[in-house]
Nucleic acid binder design. Structure first.
Length: 597
DNA sequence: GCCGTTTTCGGCCCGACTGTTTTCAGTCG
């Protein structure tokens, strides 16, 4: 990349380098570095296919089960699709030295701020390069200044509109984080879909994209409709009261920014095209790429308009028909992440995924005994009204003073109350559990004579997040090994878009759970969705059972179990993997076996 | 840089929209 002419403001000190890490390299470290390498190579105008190789490898590594170090040593990593000799040796180098020389060399050629600029919508590698080489702009702040001074519009290939869009994009980037919680996006998306699908020109409609795939966070809302004519639909979409600004408006596609800060796209296709478009716009991009590749191999062409043989459309009424034509079983949207679902569909071994109606009861809700807003009875009646046959309450333990954790006296009082509620509600059962803090040394929050009073014990970390990975892992494993532990709560403590997970070796936790017959929860609160779906298949393979837990503090909050079911589906789970699908007698047996060790 | 039922070279998914152009490049998904 050509160096720009120096400008007076360019003489800033370079950033200090981080000291090399001593901790072993993780899969997400490698994935992040490869992603960044891809962006750097883009800015350096490298071969686009080389760039894609790095991106593919990043994804492949991130979703690998098992321990990276072992896979390097055994050479097993070389069998992973997307990792060839060259990338394998890069990963080896990273593991052995903690650095990657070609990455550092490439990165040294471009200022750090250029990578940041790629995040501005409309600023791709070419445009970033242009402002850098011609105006000497090397970060977002400088770009903003230049645009305000009208210097960007004067560049060849740019113009007034581009300049305005850049300023708007920078503003948005600052105002909103790039991603949104699944729950927030769902609320917005359902609202829009409700309004748009009422339009008289609309035949079929669908929420597509990552929402349909139940990703835990969402970049934008994709809505697809079929109609014979699109103009009036586009008008009502861009005119919705929740729209803040219109980014693009065309015949087949319009984009808006909602007042909530979420981007939403509407696409209109003919009804004949609808199945193909719904598959295409549901993604993921990686799944689509594999599907196209498969189609091509079989002599077809697949795109959002259809499946074509010799340029002739192969009619398909729905997505099922498309998969069938390509020799595949139907792949539910949650699985379309290029994680082996196409191979499984080909061999007819896709799992029969869990569904909401398979759930018979819920676990891990709070009551007024700790920081909940409803009594034991109110929560129980709420769960019953949602169609459940039992509810496992689990208030905070005594260390959680901030959340009104239960004293030993409270525990006994609550036990009495649970008994009474169970008497008064016929055909419904309340299990008394506790969400016991895992103390820093890995012990639980009550002595055994109290722990043995509970029907079940959920163990979770609520303080002292800053331990090293090995200390945290040891701490939690000790809690898992406690004979009274039934269930591990939110295993990483993450709060989506707000707080990083604490450092912990999840594979080691899964192994410990398997050895000690401890259930792992999918905390279904949309801020958590923890255990992450990417680890569920490993847990399942190791024989670890999963619980869907709303961790709700209100009656309505129990509805969050639906997100948990979505995540369980995304993790390939069936009803045999999830203890909520046992009836109350089954749960009784499961809990009793634990209490007796 | 990866990959192989067109296999060790030559492909690698493809179309819409925008803004700048006047036939197209860049970006995005």
């Amino acid at each position: 990349m050509k160096k720009p002419k120096p400008r007076p403001s360019d003489s800033r000190p370079s950033k200090k380098k981080k000291p090399s890490e001593k901790t072993p390299i993780t899969k997400s470290d490698v994935a992040r570095l490869f992603e960044e390498m891809a962006s750097v190579l883009e800015l350096l105008d490298e071969n686009p296919f080389k760039i894609r190789s790095y991106q593919n490898a990043a994804r492949a590594i991130e979703s690998l089960p098992g321990e990276l170090g072992e896979m390097i040593d055994s050479g097993e990593l070389l069998n992973v699709k997307g990792i060839g000799k060259s990338l394998f040796s890069h990963i080896e180098e990273l593991r052995n030295t903690g650095r990657l020389e070609i990455y550092e060399k490439a990165k040294a050629k471009i200022p750090e701020g250029l990578l940041e600029m790629l995040r501005i919508p409309g600023m791709g590698p070419k445009k970033v390069k242009a402002v850098y080489e011609k105006l000497g702009i090397s970060d977002i702040d400088q770009l903003e200044t230049a645009a305000n001074e009208n210097r960007v519009a004067a560049l060849e290939g740019f113009g007034t509109k581009t300049q305005v869009n850049i300023l708007y994009g920078i503003q948005n980037l600052r105002k909103y984080s790039e991603r949104h919680l699944l729950s927030k996006a769902f609320t917005e998306a359902r609202g829009i879909l409700g309004e748009i699908s009422k339009h008289r020109d609309v035949k079929r409609s669908l929420l597509a994209g990552s929402l349909r795939r139940i990703k835990e966070t969402i970049k934008d809302i994709d809505i697809l409709v079929s109609a014979a004519k699109s103009e009036a639909i586009m008008d009502s979409f861009t005119g919705l009261s929740r729209v803040a600004s219109v980014v693009a408006k065309g015949k087949t596609k319009s984009s808006v920014v909602l007042k909530s800060g979420i981007n939403a796209d509407l696409r209109v296709v003919s009804d004949k095209e609808f199945p193909f478009a719904s598959h295409y716009f549901t993604g993921s991009k990686e799944h689509n790429t594999e599907m196209r590749g498969r189609a091509k191999k079989m002599g077809y062409k697949l795109n959002e308009y259809g499946l074509f043989k010799d340029d002739k459309l192969v009619a398909c009424d729905d997505e099922k028909a498309i998969f069938r034509r390509l020799g595949l079983d139907y792949i539910p949207p949650e699985l379309r992440e290029a994680q082996g679902e196409i191979e499984a569909a080909e061999q007819h071994v896709l799992p029969n995924l869990l569904s909401e109606t398979d759930l018979i009861g819920l676990f891990h809700v709070h009551t007024t005994y700790s920081d909940g807003t409803a009594s034991v009875k109110e929560m129980a009646k709420g769960a019953e009204a949602m169609g459940f046959a039992y509810l496992g309450i689990a208030d905070h333990s005594r260390s959680a003073a901030y959340a009104g954790g239960l004293s030993t006296a409270d525990v006994k009082k609550q036990a009495k109350e649970v008994k009474e509620v169970n008497k008064s509600l016929r055909g419904f059962r309340v299990f008394q559990g506790i969400e016991s803090d895992i103390l820093t040394d890995g012990s639980l929050d009550y002595p055994t004579e109290i722990l043995e009073l509970f029907d079940f014990v959920v163990v979770s970390v609520h303080q002292n997040f800053g331990l090293s990975q090995s200390e945290m892992t040891k701490r939690i494993i000790r809690a898992i090994e406690n004979p009274y532990t039934t269930m591990l709560g939110h295993p990483t403590g993450r709060l989506l878009l707000a707080r990083e997970a604490y450092k912990v070796d999840l594979y080691a936790l899964i192994d410990a759970a398997a050895e000690n017959d401890v259930v792992i929860e999918i905390n279904s609160n949309p801020h958590r969705l923890d255990l992450d779906w990417r680890y569920l298949r490993t847990a399942k393979e190791k024989g670890v059972k999963i619980a869907i837990c709303p961790d709700s503090h209100t009656v309505e909050g129990m509805e969050d179990y639906r997100y948990g079911v979505g995540i369980a589906r995304k993790g390939w789970l069936t009803k045999d993997d999830v203890i909520n699908c046992l009836d109350a007698t089954g749960i009784d047996t499961l809990f009793a076996s634990k209490r007796k060790g």
